[in-house]
Write a protein that binds this DNA or RNA. Structure first.
Length: 558
RNA sequence: UGGGGUGUCGCCAAGUUGGUAAGGCACCGGAUUUUGAUUCCGGCAUUCGCAGGUUCGAGUCCUGCCACCCCAGCCA
């Protein structure tokens, strides 16, 4: 342990250990500067959350700084809307970058100057090969590449051509620049990589000021240097790029050289975590948008009703390592439930089945007081109306119970109505299909709290809502988006959209106790025995509340 | 078959001068419970990808295998 922070239960991850060591040796003068560098070409997802928590978390833990930097070097894919969504999501997750909001495009001029410097040092050249020619001469994994015929152009000519590229004298993509490193390098990234390309595209921030844009490998290391980043944390696929990262900074002899450290990206079962696939789900109409509650995007989870603390805790629990792995969905679900446990309770029926209490007066009505939370008295209580006709959950009744462990309602059986009386099913009225359409039950009027039979034990307790007072609501029941654990990596040739779960969203007309209809949009409640629900602000109206099922209760009923 | 990585319980993950396998998730008991929830107790790797070797002693050192992931965008 490094002794930082208050949570000493969790051991340091390997990155924190490296930083602690660097601080001890004075490598960066004890400073710690990180950055979360998303490309604004899509919405952030839970995989990004891992990186956000890591970067901001590490900075906070070591009393350093963390930048939020838009890696906006490809104007063809990036938009201001994505920039806004990213900022919104990072903020919602609970992180504050204060005035450290930057954009790689802020550095375009500096980057350009550094490029001229590279040319002056004879380490970069303007290459007039076409895209296909460059590809053809790059070599393969096992064969070395062939040097470009333009590789030995003189410094003056390169400088002249580069300046004319900036001035707009060359066509799109027609001219590129490579770095003069090693065409025979076994690491393909080192074979004279392209650093700049002419791209006559409107940039969401710099507009039409530029017609040539720097590439990631060239931009990222220098942006890190400019911001004084000490530990540049990225995912494993960039490991092969680290030599290039170092090459640029070494060649330019920058006075500060950030250290790139790679960690493995998050993989989650039963979902996809790649912007390409997430984007395809939207454009192909499989979901309602980037913020569809079924998506693993930050916006989707927020809309579903998940709270940021659950996501942060999840990121904390899964750890940070260099080994590839896929986290089970149950780990995320556990965090979501843990976080929601403190939320108030309520009674809501998802699939109503009518119950008539034959021995209860036609015009009778009572109001039962019920605690808002069984373990937290500070939340107070609310009153629940009761009358002769009720709605109970359809799945809480079975004509023929499977075994003796069944504790719900069935012909002749008794159950307790949560917060209320014990009832017995005397008669079942079935429809043409044999399904129960109504239950005729009798109430034990002495079985409520305070009554003579209050202590009488029955096997089960079920939830219910007064038919006379209940409020109709729209319920959106969400389930996993895919039926396969690894939809993005199917080995049998199927496309990930072929294994979408057709039941990932189920619409239901439910009924809830009146108190729940008075809740403010954005409220969360646990419908007892059914799960946690979120009164979705975007969809709810005064006339029709819309609840999203965030997640079901844990179900250990075998 | 070039280069770079990774392999510790079903999943995630500690293990850092070699000293006799943390924790979380899941699962299985059992207690409390007017939510089959929560909470609470208890169980859950003679073994660390495999095979050798060094050593009094190896997940940790050495050698050789094997498996999986990433890389041939003018994407990031």
């Amino acid at each position: 342990m490094t002794g930082h922070g208050t949570d000493n239960a969790r051991p340091d991850n390997f990155i924190e250990q490296i930083i602690a060591r660097d601080n001890a040796s004075g490598k960066f003068g004890g400073r710690v500067v990180t950055r979360f560098p998303p490309e604004p070409n899509g919405f952030l997802h839970i995989g990004h959350a891992k990186s956000i928590c890591l970067n901001f978390g590490v900075a906070k833990r070591f009393e350093g700084l963390c930048y939020l930097r838009m890696d906006d070097t490809n104007p063809l894919k990036e938009t201001a809307e994505y920039v806004a969504s990213i900022q919104n999501d990072v903020r919602w997750l609970g992180f504050d970058w204060e005035d450290r909001e930057t954009h790689a495009s802020d550095y375009f001029e500096q980057l350009y100057q550094f490029a001229e410097e590279l040319i002056l040092r004879g380490r970069a050249f303007v290459c007039s090969l076409s895209l296909d020619e460059i590809r053809a001469t790059r070599g393969t994994l096992t064969e070395p590449g062939q040097p470009s015929p333009y590789r030995e152009r003189g410094v003056e000519e390169n400088l002249d051509l580069f300046r004319r590229m900036r001035a707009g004298e060359f066509e799109d993509g027609a001219v590129v620049r490579g770095a003069k490193s090693y065409m025979a390098a076994p690491n393909i990234n080192l074979r004279d990589p392209v650093l700049y390309r002419v791209r006559r595209a409107h940039h969401q921030r710099t507009g039409d000021a530029w017609c040539l844009y720097p590439m990631y490998d060239y931009t990222h290391c220098l942006s890190d240097f400019i911001e004084g980043v000490t530990h540049s944390l990225c995912t494993l696929e960039f490991e092969d790029h680290r030599p290039l990262y170092d090459w640029v900074l070494d060649t330019l002899a920058t006075p500060h050289h950030p250290q790139q450290i790679e960690f493995s990206r998050l993989n989650l079962e039963y979902t996809v975590l790649s912007k390409r696939m997430l984007n395809a789900l939207v454009t192909e109409g499989h979901v309602d948008g980037w913020d569809d509650p079924r998506k693993p995007t930050i916006a989707g989870m927020r809309r579903r009703g998940v709270r940021p603390a659950a996501i942060r805790e999840f990121c904390e629990r899964i750890g940070v390592t260099r080994s590839d792995g896929t986290v089970e969905m149950s780990a995320l679900e556990r965090c979501i439930r843990d976080d929601l446990e403190a939320v108030p309770r309520g009674l809501g029926v998802v699939e109503p089945l009518k119950v008539v209490l034959t021995n209860y007066p036609e015009d009778g009505e009572e109001w039962f007081s019920a605690a808002q939370h069984p373990q937290d008295e500070s939340l107070g209580s609310r009153d629940i109306p009761f009358c002769r006709e009720l709605w109970i959950e359809r799945e809480d009744f079975m004509l023929e119970p499977p075994n003796k462990k069944y504790k719900r309602l069935s012909p002749g059986a008794e159950v307790r109505l949560r917060y209320g009386y014990i009832i017995r099913c005397d008669e079942v009225i079935t429809g043409n299909d044999g399904e129960a359409v109504e239950l005729r039950c009798s109430v034990d009027l002495e079985s409520r709290a305070g009554g003579a039979n209050a202590e009488r034990k029955v096997k089960g307790v079920i939830h219910w809502v007064s038919a006379r007072h209940g409020v109709d609501v729209e319920l959106r029941l969400y389930d996993r988006l895919f039926n396969e654990p690894n939809p993005g990596g199917l080995k049998d040739g199927r496309h990930f959209t072929e294994v979408l779960n057709p039941d990932s969203l189920t619409l239901r007309h439910g009924v809830v106790e009146p108190h729940l209809a008075t809740l403010a949009p954005g409220s969360r409640v646990q419908f007892e025995r059914m799960g946690w629900f979120y009164l979705e602000p975007e969809r709810s109206t005064a006339e029709k509340p819309v609840f999203n099922r965030i997640i079901t209760l844990r179900d250990t009923w075998s």
